[in-house]
Nucleic acid binder design. Structure first.
Lengths: 325, 325
DNA sequence: TCAAAAGTGTTATCCTTACACCCATGT
DNA sequence: ACATGGGTGTAAGGATAACACTTTTGA
């Protein structure tokens, strides 16, 4: 109760660095070139002697390693679970990781990325059930819901959760067609982990009972608990863009309203109503027309807009509070 | 870019434990009985060998030291700034603190608290400018705004902030009567810290230029960066209670609607419209009447209600989305 | 009977959602 | 001319915010 007692421990900063390209949100991953080595998010040490704050340390190691200029940076969560770092061939007591979300654009020149063995991968490779833009993902009914329903048939008495498994399942995945909340990315992943349905759980020694026959993998796995950090990042970004104008960090200087909408849809993983979205954008006054027109749109040329950075100073700017459907 | 590199470092868990009593939100502080020692939030070590997760560690040290049963617990932020821990008489390299918000009730029997040298203090002692229930706090016009305005007259070119000082001031404190956003607690405190106007900043060696004559203290100080953690906690709670039913953790099992409103108002630091609040509560169906009546209310007896815990299971329950005025 | 607090009814306004159609360009 | 995507007007319904008055108790 007095002062903090000290325990030596090690801290890693792990970054979910997001960019959007070709209507697909992408995440910077590293470690792909080593055969058999699983992909992971870029992560670096926090050395309190070298850097004054986490954020400075993060920006430094990202810039050093990828020559990537990340704009928006935000702390996500600090994960301290033992067990979540178990991995074959990896030793050492790295226990705590501070997760960060960073927004950037895919660089025109990716030499620096290649040199670092890194690249941008579509995030829906890791979360195929999160992309509803082409309708309800087939993997839900084909694999996820049946497996989770089986797992939720009973709730062990020793389980300390506030809610029974069935209720948690319903809250995270909705019931049938409706009730899907695109922001519950982490809740869904955690359920899959607890049920032993994702590779990371098996790796950590969970879900042995259910996984007698080796099931189809549910999305691509990542090292350590990086997929959990990515889930947190997606959830945060999906939520944040509704009340703070952060999408613009992912767009070029000039963009059409359709590009803006497609970017938002790519992140949210669902379609938005065109007219309402445009009215919404207009009402926020977050953008202004440049006067230029985009050529080659395939149809009628679209007006180009730019983000009005000055609104940030003049009032507490909200994001794009898009609603349902 | 490969695996996380390791750096030995120390981690403390710091808890902002909130309860509401007599229409005043209170925060558990310790260290008061030692003459001259500044108050601090309860904090404990994180020992990865003893506890599987941060939350378990937190619950354990709180229960051990105060015999307090905290219900709702949520991670706030992980602070890693060097400089923010400087304090006379305190040595050692405690660098990283993981802040937590916990909700509880003031125990009927506070022997265990007293034994631990802890007690609940009204949080507005530390943030007098955050309580607008009796109108705009006098300290704003009398001390805070003039001092900040002077500080914001110029923005040093070397300052890396995204916005000039004047703009940040306006966003955090509003302009004049309107524009106050009760959720910007942390932004306001950080501005005061940066401007060297709070004791913690002077302690850390900031704000020497401005503080030639020793100014009146702006709220009571806390040890280390605990006031910053408290600011984060207040902001989070003010925000969270609007979209998740967490207030009920702070109320007794049975309560009147006025008690509920007073509790929400105490946290938000402002008054709410009675009729609209009641309609709001009714529309959420978060509470049900017990059938009993509260006696001794001073006037007409009020109906007693209880929180319907079952709603948590049946649907994604929002909080009390109270609006303006 | 009066003070103190509980409790209710109604209306204007704005925001959200949904609807369907016209416009400008390239091929 | 037609395919492709850009761009707009409008109306219904619901949520929000503001309004003032009646009821029940204790002193």
């Amino acid at each position: 109760m007095r002062g903090p007692v000290r325990t030596p421990i090690e801290i890693g900063l792990t970054a979910a660095i997001v960019a959007v390209e070709e209507e697909s949100p992408r995440i910077l991953v590293a470690g792909a070139d080593r055969a058999g080595a699983p992909l992971g998010l870029p992560s670096g040490p926090f050395d309190a002697l070298k850097h004054r704050t986490f954020e400075i340390a993060l920006r430094t190691f990202v810039a050093e390693q990828t020559a990537l200029a990340v704009g928006y940076v935000e702390q996500l969560y600090t994960f301290g679970d033992r067990g979540r770092h178990a991995q074959a061939g990896d030793t050492g007591p790295h226990v705590v990781s501070v997760g960060y979300l960073a927004l950037t654009r895919v660089p025109a020149d990716d030499k620096a990325l290649k040199a670092a063995g890194a690249r941008f991968e579509p995030w829906y490779r890791f979360f195929p059930w999160e992309d509803w833009r082409k309708g309800r993902p087939a993997i839900l009914n084909a694999a996820i819901i049946p497996a989770l329903a089986a797992w939720a048939k009973t709730t062990p008495a020793r389980e300390q959760a506030a809610l029974p498994r069935r209720a948690r399942l319903k809250l995270a995945f909705g019931d049938g067609a409706s009730g899907w909340d695109e922001e519950k990315v982490l809740e869904r992943y955690e359920l899959l982990y607890e049920a032993g349905l994702v590779e990371e759980a098996r790796r950590d020694g969970r879900g042995v009972a259910l996984a007698r026959k080796k099931p189809a993998p549910l999305g691509a796995a990542l090292r350590f608990d990086h997929r959990r950090i990515l889930a947190t990042a997606i959830a945060r970004l999906r939520s944040k863009m509704k009340y703070r104008p952060v999408v613009f960090e992912l767009l070029d200087e000039e963009f059409t309203l359709t590009e803006l909408q497609r970017t938002v849809e790519a992140i949210a993983g669902r379609h938005l109503h065109k007219q309402n979205f445009r009215r919404l954008v207009e009402s926020t006054a977050l953008v202004e027309p440049t006067g230029e027109m985009a050529t080659k749109t395939g149809g009628r040329p679209a007006a180009l807009y730019r983000f009005r950075r000055d609104v940030l100073a003049e009032r507490p700017a909200a994001g794009l509070r898009f609603g349902g459907r």
